[in-house]
Simulated scan of single mutants.
Amino acid sequence: MKFEKTPGWLDWYAGPSKPRFKLPDGAVDAHCHVFGPGDEFPFAPERKYTPCDASKHQLFALRDHLGFSRNVIVQATCHGADNSAVIDALAASNGKARGIATVKRSVTDAELEAMHAAGIRGVRFNFVKRLVDFTPKDELMEIAGRIAKLGWHVVIYFEAVDLPELMDFFTALPTTVVVDHMGRPDVAKGVDGEEFALFVDFMRRHNNVWSKVSCPERLSVSGPRALHGERQAYRDVVPFARRLVELFPERVLWGTDWPHPNLKDHMPDDGLLVDFIPHIAVTPESQYRLLVGNPMRLYWPEETR
């Protein structure tokens, strides 16, 4: 089936540089996606956007180029609740990938168990209004209760301005909760502003809440400029991510977000994104926890016991 990409949205960058930062052995890219290919895994009729194809083979080639050992592949909204593309990628990974699915209330226990056997370890609840239609919270809570029995967790995606109205629901979830991209703070308001302070307090009060300190390319106002020949882009996002890494060293994850859906102004160089890491995790110990220890504990616990 032929799909036409949403006009104005960029293709992923096909020539990523080689990072200068050497990732620790066993590093995990804990947030990435596969899109289609559309002729093999059609996009959902209810989708809000149509991306370019981004296959498992291209994802694994990027993994090797950047120096990662494993991936956590997150179901993209353009595929709705059909997780076939993610599960196919997991099957091709030789155990080097885990997945986050999207499911509906109608999913059966047998289907959940089959997903677990395939490598799914959580479900994503998306609250970004421009990307998904509203799902009743009682339905989401029911799903969370069912996946808790499998030892899965919930990944939540929202924008910082909406945290006050969502916080009670998040704190009632019966699982570990992983927040995408630091809750998308408005970096123009500053790391000491009320908005980010609320998110930090949310994590401080609830030990089951983790955060991905990822996606500076989505949050930055200053943009990808590297000053004076340095490879430190997205400088205005560094204080936010570094604060979470320092305050919650055992509950942070990092991922590329490849192939960077819905971007219109620029498409990041994934090598440059990897070189963002040592600016937010400044010691070898914190880098290891962020990239190896934490994601292994969450996604491959059987290998960490």
Score class of each variant (00 low, 15 high):
2 K>D: 15
3 F>R: 11
7 P>D: 12
7 P>L: 06
8 G>P: 01
16 P>F: 00
16 P>M: 00
17 S>H: 04
19 P>E: 07
19 P>V: 08
26 G>F: 05
29 D>Y: 00
29 D>A: 06
38 G>W: 06
39 D>V: 12
43 F>Y: 14
45 P>R: 13
45 P>I: 06
54 A>F: 13
59 L>F: 05
67 G>A: 13
74 V>L: 02
76 A>M: 10
80 G>D: 14
81 A>M: 11
86 V>R: 08
87 I>K: 07
87 I>N: 05
88 D>E: 13
91 A>F: 12
93 S>A: 15
96 K>I: 07
99 G>M: 09
103 V>T: 12
104 K>C: 04
105 R>M: 08
106 S>F: 05
107 V>S: 10
114 A>F: 08
116 H>E: 15
118 A>L: 05
120 I>L: 11
125 F>L: 06
140 L>Q: 04
143 I>E: 02
144 A>M: 07
148 A>P: 03
152 W>T: 04
152 W>Y: 10
155 V>T: 07
158 F>I: 09
163 L>N: 08
167 M>I: 14
167 M>N: 08
169 F>I: 09
180 D>R: 03
183 G>P: 01
184 R>K: 13
187 V>M: 08
187 V>Y: 02
187 V>A: 08
188 A>I: 06
189 K>E: 14
190 G>M: 12
191 V>N: 11
192 D>G: 14
193 G>A: 10
195 E>Q: 15
197 A>F: 08
198 L>R: 15
205 R>D: 12
212 K>V: 02
214 S>V: 07
218 R>Y: 09
219 L>K: 03
226 A>Y: 05
232 Q>G: 06
234 Y>K: 00
242 R>F: 12
245 V>Y: 01
249 P>T: 04
260 H>E: 02
260 H>P: 05
265 D>I: 05
266 H>W: 14
267 M>G: 06
271 G>Y: 01
273 L>E: 00
276 F>D: 02
278 P>M: 03
278 P>W: 09
280 I>R: 03
284 P>D: 14
285 E>M: 04
288 Y>R: 15
294 N>F: 05
297 R>T: 12
297 R>A: 15
298 L>Q: 11
299 Y>E: 04
301 P>Q: 10
303 E>I: 01
